[in-house]
Amino acid sequence: MALKLKLEDGVHEVEIVGRRPHLTVRIDGRLHTIADLGPAGDGSGTVTLDGADLAFERIARAGACLVRIDGRTITVDVVDPFDEGGGAGGGRDEILAPMPGAVVHVHRSAGDEVARGEAVLTIESMKLQTTLVAPRDGVLVAVLKGEGDTFEKDEVIARLAPVEGDQ
């Protein structure tokens, strides 16, 4: 699953594709190798990016990270996937399967009111359990899979509608 980072020039999709022998990431579709990142947290150091050594300084500030590299200071924010659709509830009406698997537990039923981030289903894929949560406040109009049911990647697992009066 890709992480989205917001920088001054826009939002960039970052996905970790390998960890050994060095960290390999795909940033906006291009592969990069990162080595010698150093310890996490505030401070300065040197990072090796695609074979080039770059000195940096970083500091965490109120949900963001300030990074000074190559003479420029960049603010980096992580994009909350719940907020991507815009508005207070994120705007998404469907809960999609992030990978193929099976439903292990159904936490909520059709007709239930749910809050953003509330557990709807727990799934299992490759022996890893993941809880799928409501992407926004709403009412579950359909839970399309039950315990033991299998599904494919990106299959719709549940659907939401706005809470009556919130439209």
Score class of each variant (00 low, 15 high):
residue 25 V to L: 14
residue 6 K to S: 14
residue 72 R to P: 01
residue 59 I to W: 10
residue 23 L to M: 15
residue 43 G to A: 06
residue 153 K to D: 06
residue 84 E to I: 15
residue 103 V to T: 10
residue 102 A to N: 01
residue 58 R to M: 07
residue 133 V to S: 04
residue 159 R to S: 08
residue 148 G to D: 02
residue 132 L to H: 00
residue 20 R to L: 08
residue 81 P to W: 15
residue 75 T to I: 14
residue 7 L to R: 08
residue 124 E to Q: 10
residue 10 G to P: 12
residue 152 E to N: 07
residue 91 G to K: 04
residue 80 D to H: 13
residue 14 V to K: 00
residue 99 M to I: 13
residue 56 F to W: 09
residue 132 L to P: 00
residue 69 I to V: 15
residue 33 T to H: 07
residue 11 V to E: 09
residue 1 M to V: 13
residue 104 V to P: 02
residue 109 S to N: 15
residue 160 L to H: 13
residue 90 G to Q: 11
residue 19 R to D: 04
residue 75 T to F: 03
residue 45 G to T: 05
residue 152 E to K: 11
residue 47 V to I: 15
residue 92 R to W: 09
residue 131 T to N: 01
residue 101 G to L: 10
residue 76 V to H: 00
residue 43 G to H: 08
residue 46 T to E: 13
residue 75 T to Y: 03
residue 15 E to S: 11
residue 81 P to D: 14
residue 120 V to T: 08
residue 63 G to N: 06
residue 167 Q to E: 15
residue 5 L to R: 01
residue 112 D to F: 12
residue 85 G to V: 15
residue 142 A to D: 14
residue 77 D to K: 09
residue 8 E to W: 04
residue 36 D to E: 14
residue 137 D to K: 05
residue 122 T to A: 07
residue 137 D to L: 02
residue 116 R to S: 11
residue 141 V to Q: 13
residue 55 A to L: 07
residue 107 H to C: 12
residue 44 S to E: 13
residue 76 V to W: 00
residue 111 G to F: 12
residue 91 G to T: 11
residue 96 L to G: 00
residue 88 A to R: 09
residue 18 G to C: 09
residue 44 S to I: 04
residue 144 L to K: 15
residue 165 G to H: 06
residue 29 G to Q: 11
residue 127 K to N: 04
residue 31 L to N: 02
residue 66 L to C: 02
residue 100 P to M: 04
residue 101 G to V: 13
residue 127 K to I: 07
residue 167 Q to A: 14
residue 128 L to P: 00
residue 122 T to S: 12
residue 57 E to P: 00
residue 4 K to F: 09
residue 146 G to I: 10
residue 65 C to N: 07
residue 154 D to C: 00
residue 165 G to E: 09
residue 129 Q to N: 10
residue 28 D to A: 07
residue 62 A to F: 10
residue 140 L to D: 12
residue 70 D to A: 12
residue 148 G to V: 03
residue 100 P to V: 05
residue 94 E to P: 00
residue 148 G to Y: 01
residue 97 A to N: 01
residue 91 G to M: 06
residue 91 G to E: 03
residue 29 G to D: 11
residue 68 R to C: 07
residue 103 V to K: 08
residue 17 V to Q: 06
residue 124 E to C: 11
residue 64 A to N: 03
residue 147 E to N: 06
residue 95 I to Q: 01
residue 77 D to P: 01
residue 97 A to V: 01
residue 150 T to Q: 10
residue 115 A to D: 03
residue 21 P to G: 05
residue 100 P to W: 10
residue 70 D to K: 02
residue 123 I to M: 12
residue 156 V to A: 02
residue 60 A to K: 05
residue 40 A to S: 05
residue 18 G to N: 13
residue 113 E to T: 15
residue 154 D to M: 05
residue 132 L to K: 00
residue 43 G to Q: 06
residue 139 V to P: 03
residue 137 D to S: 03
residue 106 V to C: 05
residue 66 L to P: 02
residue 57 E to T: 15
residue 101 G to Y: 11
residue 55 A to K: 11
residue 139 V to E: 10
residue 71 G to M: 03
residue 11 V to S: 03
